[in-house]
Each structure stands twice: as structure tokens, then as C-alpha cells.
């Protein structure tokens, strides 16, 4: 037993004496070193962005998308064990479809997150399963406006104005806090998202990455979750790189002094 610690981390079904579920905590470790994902709640919608770490130069550029849709009006970005994220999204789609088949109305974002939250929580209760190795950012618009949530392996979820997960989360959160959320437009949100991902990538400098940005807003996309148009993407990247350079210059100035 001693070689494997206290043994309380071997099962979901057993608490440690101080009331912790170690498996759930370990699941969060799977997220901590993954590529950064952020979500920004804006005046008229939500922006999602991910720093997609390129694990191989042989991967096809611009493919293997990481941001996914749960329904027309709901998008997801997650960091962690990717297959877990894919499974999470599939469950979300099933829930959205099941709601619509009964009520003939698109599911509202808070109701969707309630349902998937319950599902994720279930994976922390049984000995036969392990928790989800992801943090997922779920954003969308419905009749009540824009919504942004982040859900953790424990199944807990909170509503946010801006949220960041993955390796660069601290840097990203610091930047998000400087923004006037949720009072900026989604167009501004897109630019900031690109900038923040570029900045957060400093924490993961040795690896190549690809930027992905999606948005969902009543005014810009008619309430549909979509990847942003190429021109907007290029502009956002340009803005991000300029800001990034400025910052480096500032850094250099500091060094000179």
C-alpha cells in the first residue's frame, strides 16, 4: 500500500478521510497542461477560442477542428483529453436533440448545461468509471440572451463573463479581467480572444499552435454558432501579433532600463 500512497486515490467511490475525491482532482491535472481555451461573453453573443497545440507537423493545417457545436445555437471549446471532450459533446447533442423532440423548441443554454452537468457528475460517483479529463466552455445564445458556462471534471459548472482553461489560463484570466465584460461587442470580443490566446501561448512557447475562433450572436450570425469569417480571422490574428510585438518591445525596454 505504501508504494501507492494512501490508496484513497484508487477509486471514485471512496472519499479520502479529509473528504476529497482524488480521482476528480487528478482529472483536473489532465487539463492543466493542455492547450488554452477561452470563452468571452459579450453584449450580443459569445466568442470561443482555442490554442490548438500541433502535436505533429504532419497534421493537416486548418483541419481537425477543436471547437464543436452541440446545437445550432450552442458551441463548446474544451481543454484536456480530447476523446473525453468528443464524448461530452456527443452527450450534449443527444440532450439538445431529446429536448427538441419533446418540446419542439431549441434547448436554452442553462437547461443544456444542467443536463450535461448531471451527466459529468455521474462519472465521479462510481468505481467502474473515471471522471471526464476535460474542462469545457459552453457558450450560446437563446431567447434570454447570451450565456457562457465552464464545467469541470467534478460536474460543477458556473456562469462566467469570461473564462479560461488549460496551460495559459492564468495569463488569459488576467487579461480577461481587464476587459469590460460583458459590455463589448462580439467583433471586439473576437479580436481580444485572438490577442489573449497569442499571449497565453507564451506559457507554451516551445510548441507550434493553431488558433481557432468561433462565435455565436444574434446580430452577427443570426443566433448560429459558427467559425468566424476568414477576413475577420486574419484581422484578429494581425491585431494579436501587433499587440504581442508591442508587449515584447515593452519587455525589452524594461530590460534596457
Amino acid at each position: 500500500m505504501s508504494s501507492i500512497g494512501t490508496g484513497y486515490d484508487l477509486s471514485n467511490a471512496i472519499f479520502s478521510p479529509d473528504g476529497r475525491n482524488f480521482q476528480v482532482e487528478y482529472a483536473s491535472k489532465a487539463v492543466e497542461n493542455a492547450g488554452t481555451s477561452i470563452g468571452i461573453k459579450c453584449r450580443d453573443g459569445v466568442v470561443l477560442a482555442v490554442e490548438k497545440i500541433q502535436t505533429s507537423k504532419l497534421l493537416v493545417a486548418g483541419r481537425n477542428k477543436r471547437i464543436q457545436s452541440i446545437d445550432r445555437h450552442i458551441g463548446v471549446a474544451y481543454s484536456g483529453i480530447i476523446p473525453d471532450g468528443r464524448h461530452f459533446v456527443n452527450r450534449g447533442r443527444d440532450e439538445a436533440q431529446s429536448f427538441k423532440s419533446l418540446y419542439k423548441d431549441p434547448i436554452k443554454v442553462p437547461n443544456l448545461i444542467d443536463r450535461v452537468g448531471l451527466y459529468v457528475q455521474n462519472y465521479t460517483c462510481a468505481n467502474s468509471v473515471r471522471p471526464f479529463g476535460i474542462n469545457a466552455i459552453v457558450g450560446g445564445v437563446d431567447d434570454d440572451g447570451a450565456h457562457l458556462y465552464m464545467i469541470e471534471p467534478s460536474g460543477v459548472y458556473w456562469g462566467y463573463c469570461g473564462t479560461a482553461i488549460g496551460k495559459g489560463r492564468q495569463t488569459a484570466k488576467a487579461e480577461l479581467e481587464k476587459l469590460d465584460l460583458p459590455n463589448i461587442s462580439v467583433k471586439d470580443g473576437v479580436k481580444e480572444a485572438a490577442r489573449i490566446i497569442y499571449l497565453a501561448h507564451e506559457d507554451n512557447k516551445d510548441k507550434e499552435f493553431e488558433l481557432e475562433i468561433s462565435w455565436v450572436s444574434q446580430s452577427e450570425t443570426g443566433g448560429r454558432h459558427e467559425f468566424i469569417p476568414q477576413e475577420l480571422f486574419d484581422a484578429a490574428v494581425q491585431y494579436a501579433q501587433e499587440e504581442d510585438d508591442d508587449e515584447e518591445e515593452e519587455d525589452e525596454d524594461v530590460e534596457v532600463q
Partner: peptide, 25 residues
């Protein structure tokens, strides 16, 4: 029955459209 359940689960009263959809279903 469905509408009572709906309100409990969704924390808001159902709209007429939702009730009508249940009748339709």
C-alpha cells in the same frame, strides 16, 4: 403532468408553445 415537470426541471413556467407542442406530440 409534463408541464408541472417542466416547470420543476427548468425553473420557469412553460410557454403556450411548449404546451401546444406536447399536445401535438
Amino acid at each position: 403532468y409534463h408541464l408541472e415537470l417542466y416547470e420543476a426541471q427548468h425553473g420557469a413556467p412553460p410557454t403556450t408553445k411548449i404546451a401546444a407542442s406536447l399536445f401535438q406530440e
